[in-house]
Design a binder for these strands. Structure first.
Length: 239
DNA sequence: TTCCGGTAGG
DNA sequence: CCTACAGGAA
């Protein structure tokens, strides 16, 4: 039993103890039980359409901003079919206040058309999912997670920041193709409740482990966090 | 690698 | 005022 937990896994260019992963997951889920953010797309009655469309709206856009426009968007576009049958121009106009509308509108429409052509079916494998229009590394993982219920990381800048501070930084510049972050995040979200642990990491990144002015002393993970110990040491040295 | 963009928060 | 944001494509 103990041997299992002390097993070391090679993750990208680093080694991580399996026990560290377990501790991270456990402390985080405890924290999340009390501190979870609430969003309409996280409701129990949210469909996979709601979840995937939300991820498209959330690209390079704060969750709090999306939350504001979400009811309006869902009210107008209640399903893939409605979206597929609306002109790009109109979609663009609705998306305008969110920004990036001129790029997002054609992508969202193209994806909706494709999904409708397939009668609401998504491809099964990651390889085939990535062939969908407007679907990159991130949305592909979201589809695996929310449509197929497969453990997959919502690896965005926020999750990357949390993991890098805790476990150590990546080598590559681009998060989306860094093998260390990809495999580490996948290990972390592979547990009993992949959606929960994904949301928990994102919430920690938004509420505590913020990019500027993180609140390390309120962090449930500080005792094992590299960043906390490093910044603590440098603070002491400065005094 | 670069660009897209309106918005909320510092 | 400036920064950062649940990324993807050219």
């Amino acid at each position: 039993m103990k041997c299992l937990l002390n097993k070391r896994s090679k993750v990208g260019h680093r080694f991580v103890l399996d026990r560290e992963i377990a501790i991270f997951q456990k402390k985080l889920s405890h924290w999340w039980r009390v501190n979870a953010r609430e969003f309409p797309w996280r409701n129990d009655n949210a469909t996979s359409y709601h979840l995937i469309v939300s991820e498209l709206l959330l690209q390079r856009t704060r969750a709090e901003t999306v939350e504001l426009y979400w009811p309006k968007f869902i009210n107008i576009f209640s399903d893939w079919d409605t979206l597929a049958n609306t002109s790009e121009k109109k979609i663009c106009k609705i998306l305008q206040p969110l920004g990036l509308s001129r790029q997002r509108a054609p992508r969202i429409k193209a994806l909706a058309v494709e999904i409708c052509t397939e009668k609401g079916r998504f491809p099964q494998t990651q390889e085939d999912i990535l062939l969908l229009p407007g679907v990159g590394q991130y949305i592909a993982n979201a589809i695996l997670l929310f449509v197929h219920d497969v453990p997959a990381p919502l690896l965005d800048v926020n999750m990357a920041r949390v993991l890098e501070r805790y476990f150590g930084s990546r080598k590559l510049v681009d998060i989306r193709f860094d093998p260390y972050l990809q495999s580490l995040s996948k290990m972390i979200v592979t547990n009993n409740d992949p959606r929960m642990i994904n949301w928990a990491i994102l919430d920690l990144g938004a509420l505590v482990c913020k990019s500027a002015n993180p609140i390390c002393n309120q962090c449930p993970l500080k005792s094992n966090c590299r960043h906390f110990h490093r910044s603590g040491r440098s603070l002491r040295q400065r005094k």
